[in-house]
Design a protein around this nucleic acid. Sequence first.
DNA 1: CTGAAAGCGCTTACAG
DNA 2: CTGAAAGCGCTTACAG
Lengths: 328, 328
Amino acid sequence: MKATIKDVAREAKVSISTVSYAINGKDRISEKTRQHVLKVAKKLNYVANGNAKLLKQKNTRAIGIFFNSWFGPIYSEIARGIEKAVHQAGYDLVACSLYGEENSTAYKYLRDRMVDGAIILTNSFDDEFLTSMASKELPLVVLDREIQSPHIYSILIDNFGGAFTATKAIVKSGVREVYFLGGPEDSYDNQKRLDGYIAALGFCGVPVNHDFILECDFTEEGAYRKMSALFDQGTIPDAIFSANDEMALGIYRAARERNLRIPKDIKVVGFDNIRESAVTTPPLTTISHQQFEMGISAAETLFHALKGNDDIEYIRIQPTKLIERESL
Amino acid sequence: MKATIKDVAREAKVSISTVSYAINGKDRISEKTRQHVLKVAKKLNYVANGNAKLLKQKNTRAIGIFFNSWFGPIYSEIARGIEKAVHQAGYDLVACSLYGEENSTAYKYLRDRMVDGAIILTNSFDDEFLTSMASKELPLVVLDREIQSPHIYSILIDNFGGAFTATKAIVKSGVREVYFLGGPEDSYDNQKRLDGYIAALGFCGVPVNHDFILECDFTEEGAYRKMSALFDQGTIPDAIFSANDEMALGIYRAARERNLRIPKDIKVVGFDNIRESAVTTPPLTTISHQQFEMGISAAETLFHALKGNDDIEYIRIQPTKLIERESL
DNA sequence: CTGAAAGCGCTTACAG
DNA sequence: CTGAAAGCGCTTACAG
């Protein structure tokens, strides 16, 4: 059985208070006593019970990172940034998924306040639940999503700006027939990216043609089908701005099957800079959001809130960058 | 401030025991009382303090998954499998990284026994530490690593079998000059994969040529450099078995720069089936280990151990499969 | 410098 | 069916 503070006290012939002081490095006891206690503790293989400690101390010194399901390639850089900042602050980071919904670990850990703060990478928690949970003692940071509520902070990708940059780059490369391959209409990201696309066309003096705006579903397979159909009816766009890289992969596959060359026959620009985009033939020109920095920013916002700062911006927008490769 | 059981008891005008019974659904109290208590609890927004609960109950009902750093694409499927099995068992799954080493969350959570069991996806914990932590109450499952110790179970990829299959497939395709591009010599995976390669050549009656065995470092960049040098000195292997997919990506890049065609000039087979391998040109033929099943297997092993079964195999080997694409 | 004691928020025999 | 009380393993005023 596991040794408790009592066992150590008995064995060391001191009181449990003394053991506690020794273990926690308080300077109230003599160095001699401390050393003695530490030796006994080591011998007994003693480690303090985390739950008892937390029960007294009230705070958990842990930050939760909650997401839908295990990280795809996109999330891992965000998580790395968060991890770095959280560690630096001396907190622990525990990741929980929402697999199982209301019975998921993420749900439970948030509801039971097993963490002092949380960073949320999913939209499976509904706004209402998050609003009801957030408090001064449990601030929340949501990524890529806007919730207007005290103690909830949003970090947003600059979807609009990224799409604007991508579309402008396409037009500058000399084409005027620029298609937009989008995600689901009700997707927040998609809406913003579409706005950026339209704004950039306007900016460049290219009229918007609504036939060029294709609705799809953000998946490789969906894009493959959509583009295959388009190609097979004889339409070969000069250029396509794909609202995410996954779909750009689908465009590539459909084009390759029909011997259409990228970028010669069709120029393609993506969004997200997923790992695959660097190794396609040709490598995909895309918009990168700075995941790592976004993670750092999320964690820092949280710690500011935890410190009680109340002049924190409720919304931060993370800049994007055009990654020029060979598909444009 | 957060409501406690006392607040609920006072407000509901019952004892705290009654509140506890009501909340936990024990059938010792009248339905009427229960409903009353539940209503008050809801009104007060009461949720039980997890730490206090755990302190009494002794076990955490949580499983830890510990890894080096945030999941690359390989790990996420394993995590998915683990998550599914853990959820099914009614446990929580918390993921912690080893970022920060001795001060990392993973280290702390294991040492402080914040979990009832753990699945370990890293070799940053040394064998000795794991051996000292493992017990009947805290069994451990290590992936892709062998530790001989009670209460520690290993789930291994069939590195040998996979390499054997890959190499045999290459020889069967009609070439006899098969190179091996390996990882670091002291890598466990690499050693087993090299053994499989050698065994397959022997099995097919092809003599082993030690000049064909190249040592590299499992990275894209390393492989790119190694192969560039090889090509530039005029050596163009008929075929290469790359001990992982990352390195196969480097081979592709070096070959592409020199207009060497795959598989016409060089056949390439990889190992791991990472996401990128499906979208290269041509798509990479590779060995897949069944990540998801491996995760399920890991979690199930853990729960068997937790239930006190003592006839569990200490080592399980996860089969591999040849994924035939177009690089062979 | 050290110890006896209260208390964190729960659960669970035990008594009635 | 309900309540008073012990106790889980700690921390931390308080007293000496």
